[in-house]
Nucleic acid binder design. Structure first.
Length: 260
DNA sequence: ATGCCCTGCTGTGCAGGA
């Protein structure tokens, strides 16, 4: 079973690329982030065999989960702050898996309420992950984490040192997710530097591979033995009018129905 | 130290992204 995640930086602008990618890469599940609008093309996905659930708002944020298998929505909000109206969280059950799609707050500039919101959001997510872990729910969290976990996850620590994505506080909280019993799937399979999921549009960062790894899959440790691979598909970032992110794909063994 | 580039918005420059 292939589960993918892609921050598309406006679904409206990227719809043809997403449909084309679904047809060629044939994932079972695709998590989308940064829809950037309230209109959602349910029919375009249904016509190529995908169920779809989404959480959207005007102009900003927005997440959607597409699946060839039926989707059961568990929650469209992250617990812990009733007044948080951002469309950043979609928790679903697909087959035997809890699949959580996140668009974690960016947090820039550092030292503002936006940075505080990011840290608080990470605390809320940590609590949710701890609950699911305690209940032994097989869980996969995928999406745009807006965190550069380690120095090897960016081309230049010096370039990123003042950015919210690279600060010690969010990085410490990311390590907290791992300590809570979740595995960074890409890093589990690949220990080399130089593998990124995002490249700035400007300064020709793409052609020089000056990127950062901020789109992740965290997999509960109980599922670790079922993981068979995790890779980054750089293809879409090289297209005309690309998103600034590219997809990450997780491969996980399906459990035979009689075993569920 | 800042902007570079890209997107949405009922805009005509701005906010937000990372």
């Amino acid at each position: 079973m292939l589960i993918a995640s892609w921050n598309v930086n406006s679904l409206k602008s990227r719809l043809s690329q997403v449909v084309s990618w679904l047809k060629t890469q044939t994932p079972d599940v695709l998590l989308l982030q940064e829809l950037k609008g309230t209109e959602f093309p349910v029919d375009a996905f249904r016509s190529i065999g995908f169920h779809a659930e989404f959480v959207a708002q005007k102009a900003y944020n927005g997440v959607a989960t597409l699946s060839r298998h039926p989707i059961k929505v568990v929650s469209t909000t992250l617990a812990g702050n009733q007044s948080d109206s951002h469309a950043r969280y979609l928790e679903t059950t697909i087959k035997d898996l809890r699949i959580i799609n996140i668009y974690l707050p960016n947090g820039n500039p550092v030292g503002t309420e936006k940075f505080d919101y990011k840290l608080a959001w990470m605390e809320r997510l940590k609590k949710r992950l701890a609950i699911l872990k305690k209940r032994n729910v097989p869980t996969i969290v995928g999406g745009d984490f807006n965190v550069i976990p380690e120095d090897i996850d960016c081309f230049s620590p010096k370039y990123w040192k003042n950015d919210a994505l690279f600060q010690p506080e969010p990085r410490e909280r990311f390590r907290g997710f791992l300590k809570a019993g979740y595995v960074d799937a890409f890093r589990h399979f690949n220990h080399e530097p130089g593998h990124y999921t995002f490249w700035e549009y400007f300064l020709d960062h793409w052609s020089h591979n000056r990127g950062i790894r901020i789109d992740h899959f965290l997999v509960s440790s109980s599922l670790q033995a079922r993981m068979t691979g995790c890779l980054i598909d750089k293809g879409p970032r090289g297209l005309i009018k690309p998103s600034d992110h590219t997809p990450i794909i997780l491969a996980i063994k399906s459990v035979p129905p009689e075993m569920e």
